[in-house]
Nucleic acid binder design. Structure first.
Lengths: 147, 147
DNA sequence: GTTGAAAGACACCATCC
DNA sequence: GGATGGTGTCTTTCAAC
């Protein structure tokens, strides 16, 4: 599916506030409500809009430490690692990567002790390189701003 | 603010569908609508609910390559790098980190050529280590499932 | 893609437990 | 802390264009 500028504006508006009504949204993109609704439904069925969700500030919930961990599996125990990471609630995401390591994981923990627990859990068959996040750099431009 | 099990269920439900009405939500967590609304407003004003947004599948929009890049600045030109990354629409996030590198950036590009363009742009004052994402490992458990 | 109308659902408030 | 009921508004949806 090829998106035009209006579709992208719709996505940008819904990214900023997914709870607004189709009417409000229609006003913002200078279209009628039924027309906007049709475009949104189309993007939903195409899977471009993957879902309506919220942004949660985990820091305010006490998870004060974010970190990135590169994980390299020693004896190729990929399945073992996948099973463990899939049920780790501290994991925000995990990707299989090409590059220096096997996986890159983002973790959110309350204290460094939780990080230690996790590293100890996998250290028998995995090597880890951990980067603690110090601050976030805000990105101003989005792919939805493009042409 | 300390969240109880009901608050966490509300967050989990809104994460799954942020467009549902307070009434629907109330049914799911076995509370009345005004009561749920009050809890939601509280979490909004506390900043725990940071916003209502959508999940976009950028792969379906043609951005087929995700990658993680570690960036190490040679002469400490942090500001220069920050300015460039802040206006790069391909950047999904960027964190200042403690560890081997200065920053870790996630990029979404249509083709490796776009990656090359970016690397060339900063190569004068930065060293980069790039990890191409091959696949995503789904995480089943969430911090909102906790106690 | 637009307009207009109708039915239904919604949030909100006051009140009460 | 939470539930109930009434009110007026806003919403989506549909038909006609």
């Amino acid at each position: 599916m090829i998106l035009d500028a209006t579709d992208k504006r719709i996505l940008a508006e819904l990214s900023a506030n997914s709870r607004q009504s189709m009417r409000e949204l229609a006003k913002k993109v200078n279209l009628s409500a039924p027309s906007v609704t049709e475009r949104v439904r189309k993007m939903e069925s195409e899977g471009i809009i993957n879902g309506y969700t919220i942004s949660i500030d985990y820091g305010k919930m006490g998870y004060g430490v974010d970190c990135f961990m590169e994980v390299t599996l020693r004896q190729g125990e990929y399945e073992k690692f996948r099973r463990i990471i899939a049920v780790n609630p501290n994991a925000e995401f995990c990707y299989r990567i090409a590059g220096r390591a096997c996986y890159i994981v983002k973790l959110r923990v309350k204290a460094l002790q939780d990080l230690e627990t996790f590293i100890n859990e996998i250290t028998g068959y995995a090597e880890t390189v951990t980067h603690i996040a110090l601050s976030k750099v805000e990105i101003e431009k989005s792919l939805l701003d493009e042409k």
